[in-house]
Simulated assay, not measured.
Amino acid sequence: MIRSVCASLLLALLTCLPVWASDQALWEQSTLNQILKRGELRVGLEAGYMPFEMLDRKGNIIGFDVDLARLMAKSMGVKLTLVNTQWDGIIPALLTDKFDVLMGGMTITPERNLQVNFTDPYIYIGQSVLMNPKHRETISSYSQLDDERYTIATKLGTTGDIAARRFMPKARIRSFESEADATIEVRSGRADAFVYDLPYNVIYAARFADSVVHLHEPFTREALGWAVRKGDPDFLNWLNNFLRQIRDEGIYDALYRKWFENTAWLKNVAG
């Protein structure tokens, strides 16, 4: 009888071994395991997206995402390295292991999700419109810009670019490499409006109140998430639990107030 029980236990153990070995191999290859071994968390972003990430007057990258990344690295017990990357190449850079996680305020879309996996949303935003002041008295809604008389500036490869083409198909759309290039077009009068994320537009309008008008009612709703390479459940699990923890402890809300409800940091921003 004892021999029979032992044989059954041994058979069960041997049956589980392939599964355990497979799980262990998955962990060995996990980005999280590599971060811990390396002692360094590499975060990809594009400095220029206020208030998520931007350069201060000393050339340092600061912002909401940066503070979250610092907390993340501290929780892991590793150092943080920020990898400033052009937006149009930021997903390829993640996929080729230039950094470990993309924290650049990326909207979760089905198309992007085919290439990368996203964490749970860490913030919700929408698209809004910055206009040249000459339209202050005549345009009060984004829908009025859907006219061939108007030129709409966007940032290439963003959901603002997609939204402008979807909701303003009759207008002339001009896409630019950066927010700065697009907004200068609006302020100079070469473009009538700029379609972009609400948080950025709110802060830009506060900085340049005399040269732009903000239609602050968002006309889309978008979830932003952190992106990781596919096939890495351990890292994705850790990131989601980290996000849940800082929300439960009130840390997330404190950082949100710092960057989205207070503009004291603007005096330290370059340009």
Rank of each mutant, 00 (worst) to 15 (best):
M1P: 03
R3S: 05
S8H: 12
S8I: 09
A12T: 10
L14G: 06
L14N: 09
V19Q: 13
A21L: 12
A21N: 11
S22W: 15
Q24S: 14
A25I: 07
W27T: 03
W27G: 04
E28S: 07
Q29P: 00
L32P: 04
I35S: 02
K37W: 11
R38T: 07
G39F: 04
E40I: 04
E40Q: 13
R42E: 00
L45C: 04
G48W: 05
Y49H: 07
M50L: 15
F52G: 02
F52V: 10
R57H: 12
N60I: 07
V66Q: 06
V66S: 02
D67G: 06
D67Q: 15
A69V: 03
A69T: 03
A73M: 07
K74A: 15
M76V: 04
K79E: 02
L80G: 01
T81P: 02
T85Q: 08
T85L: 07
G89F: 14
G89R: 15
I90E: 02
I90F: 05
P92C: 10
A93Y: 01
L94W: 01
D97C: 01
K98R: 15
F99L: 01
F99K: 01
V101I: 02
G104F: 03
G105Q: 01
G105D: 06
G105L: 03
M106N: 08
I108F: 06
E111I: 05
R112A: 06
L114D: 08
V116C: 06
P121S: 04
I123V: 14
Y124H: 08
G126P: 06
S128C: 06
S128L: 07
N132V: 00
P133M: 13
K134A: 08
H135R: 12
R136C: 07
R136D: 13
R136K: 15
E137G: 12
T138S: 14
S141E: 09
S143D: 06
Q144K: 11
L145G: 01
L145H: 02
D146T: 00
D147C: 09
R149V: 02
I152Y: 03
A153M: 04
T154Q: 02
K155N: 09
K155V: 12
L156Y: 14
A164N: 00
F167E: 03
M168T: 03
P169V: 09
S175N: 05
S178L: 13
E179R: 09
A180S: 11
A182V: 07
E185K: 14
V186R: 08
D192L: 01
F194N: 00
V195E: 06
Y196I: 07
N201H: 14
V202T: 13
V202K: 14
I203W: 10
Y204P: 04
Y204S: 03
R207K: 14
R207W: 10
R207P: 00
V213D: 09
V213Y: 10
P218R: 12
R221L: 14
E222G: 00
L224P: 00
W226Y: 11
V228T: 05
F235W: 12
N237T: 07
L239A: 03
L239P: 05
N240T: 05
N240S: 13
N240M: 15
F242N: 05
R244P: 04
Q245G: 00
D248T: 05
E249N: 10
G250Y: 12
Y252S: 05
Y252R: 06
D253T: 08
Y256V: 11
W265G: 03
V269W: 13
V269C: 06
A270E: 12
G271I: 12
